[in-house]
Amino acid sequence: MTTTTTTAADADPGTDARCGPGMSRRERIGHLLQHHGALMVLAVTVVVGALVFDSFATPQNAANIVVSSSFLAIVAIGMTFVIISGGVDLSVGSSFVLAGVLAAYGSRYGLLVALLLPLSVCGAIGLVQGLIVARTGMAPFIVTLAGLLGMRGLMLAVSDEGANTYLVQNDAFSALGQASFLGLTVPVWITLGLALLGGVLLQRTGFGQNVYAIGGSEEAAVLMGVPVTRVKVLVYLISGLLAGLAGALNAARLSSGVTILGAGMELDVIAAVVIGGTLLTGGSGGLIGTMAGVLLLGVIQSLINQIGVLTSSFQQVVSGAFLALVVVAQRILHRAQRLS
């Protein structure tokens, strides 16, 4: 428009109470809880843990939590993209395990193969899943469930029904999983880097905004001219690649392609993302929350180990209860925001 509308400018915006500048206090609190609730709970849990258990707040324990969480975190970054776009990727657990086996197998041919083999296989499967979801409109749940089963079978075939455990035979590759820098292992630094990169991609690029738009309202996104198919395909590709990378790094850490660790991981990943404040219905959430969600799961596990009397399986009970709480809280927050 080249001219200014006199009528529009004359209209008094003050009469609509909701159009006042800034958000109300209640709205701001709701917003804060929704987006940073996990971070706050994490902080509280850490402080309480430190006060109750002497051995909890040690640098050693902190490093343990961070290192063991880093693999889950990498997968969760990809999952955050998928869930914000309104989908879900159930295949990441299988992808993670398959990548570990492939990386260990490939390590005998050198560092490059050890990395590229799992990445290309998992990336390709992610791409295919994305294409099916985006092009046919089939439910992501079903498509990635098929991916889960298919990759589990592929892993069993590669490892002779799990009888054959490949050992990592490349020092450079092992270093990727085990070497330390400034007190933290390489996977932790990779996680940090990816989280930062992912955060910028999600919040500060057109691609990221398109992911939010599709998850928020796919119909609206289509009408607003968002390239829905391309964005969806990319989202599943990212998820597949990151699950593959995490699996490869895990193999490097363990020096072998373990065929059982990581199966069922997809549920932990989804739990971490949801606890982090990302709505399963899509359109809302972020990576800071996801990172907090991952760490929270790690901290809960560590605290339960501290208690000692309880077995570690109790961790799942607590995580499950926590997840339920978060979902209920989100529902309430969501309603409060709508009504405000």
């Binding site: 057109g206 905004q209 398109n210 939010y212 738009a213 607003m224 968002v226 709505l279 359109g283 809302s284």
Partner: peptide, 27 residues
């Protein structure tokens, strides 16, 4: 037909966000 959860600004300018040279949105 807009995306309810996104901000007014992001809805208004989706697809035409002002970007810096690196392709990062200048919020």
């Amino acid at each position: 037909n807009l995306v309810p959860q996104m901000s007014l600004a992001h809805n208004l300018l989706l697809g035409r966000e002002p970007c810096s040279r690196l392709g990062v949105i200048d919020t």
